[in-house]
Computed example of a mutant assay.
Amino acid sequence: MPILDAVLLFLAGFLSGAVNAVAGGGTFITFGAMTLAGLPPIVANATSSVTQFPGYITSTLAYWHDIKHFWRGALLLSLISALGALSGALILLSLDNPSFRALVPWLLLAATALFAAGPWLKPAPKPEHEAAVGSLVGSLAQFATAVYGGFFGAGMGVMMLATLGLTQSGDYHRLNALKNMLAVVIAAVAILVFVSGGVIAWLQAIIMIPGGALGGYAGVWIARRVPQNAVRGFVIAVGLFLAFYYFDKG
């Protein structure tokens, strides 16, 4: 691998971890960097899932105090999420790179719009209720979100938080904890499928993961000095740039 590509990937991992810590949306950066480094879109998408996975784990552990009160009740949604992620990942592997490439700009535009709308999609606090699961509508919404997450993860967190806010009870922190727990399930299943399909670029992932860890730590410093709206604007600009890049390449 050229040194310049390695530096680009490490910096992308750092930026991804930093923006995830401040506003979310790091997948846009990791996917974009691997695309610019010459990886096929399916490989870039699958490898991006690997680079984001440690962040899902740490975010879930940070909410462990909330999760331990409802995890048994969330097992049904976890199973639904696993089935949805399996479906989405298998759909991705059934496509060839030209077919997926044709979908990518539309997926990026949709994910960017979803990310931009994120502040207006956050659920209203309902502290008087416990986080609950089990409705048919909630199960179907989570299955659809998990299919999307297994197929193309950008914007999944915003989508899941919005659907959980509409279909489940609980205050914002409980819903965010549930979202993080389900994101781990979705990512883990998708990664297993991608590994079995041989579409992970391990060298690129190994370079980006330490950068992401450092970026997540630096995100605390950035959050105190850079307005969240500025970070969100940067992520939206990256998403739009990638969308138009793929439109131009198509």
Results as ranks from 00 to 15, higher is better:
23 A>F: 05
222 I>T: 09
8 L>F: 10
133 V>S: 15
134 G>C: 04
137 V>W: 15
234 F>I: 01
236 I>E: 06
139 S>V: 12
227 P>T: 02
236 I>N: 04
186 I>R: 13
61 L>I: 12
238 V>L: 01
118 G>P: 06
93 L>Y: 02
60 T>E: 04
180 N>Y: 03
78 S>M: 12
83 L>Q: 11
244 F>C: 10
246 Y>G: 08
81 S>N: 10
140 L>Y: 07
245 Y>K: 15
205 A>H: 05
104 V>W: 00
60 T>A: 14
116 A>Q: 13
40 P>S: 12
231 V>M: 07
219 G>R: 00
3 I>V: 15
132 A>S: 15
48 S>H: 09
158 V>E: 14
84 G>P: 03
178 L>I: 12
226 V>W: 10
96 D>P: 00
47 T>F: 08
220 V>A: 13
93 L>C: 03
108 L>M: 09
127 P>S: 05
228 Q>Y: 00
33 A>Q: 02
198 G>D: 01
171 D>V: 01
111 A>V: 07
133 V>H: 15
222 I>Y: 00
23 A>S: 13
100 F>E: 05
210 P>N: 02
73 G>V: 08
53 F>L: 06
14 F>R: 00
162 A>N: 06
148 Y>K: 11
176 N>R: 11
35 T>E: 07
124 A>V: 11
146 A>F: 07
56 Y>W: 13
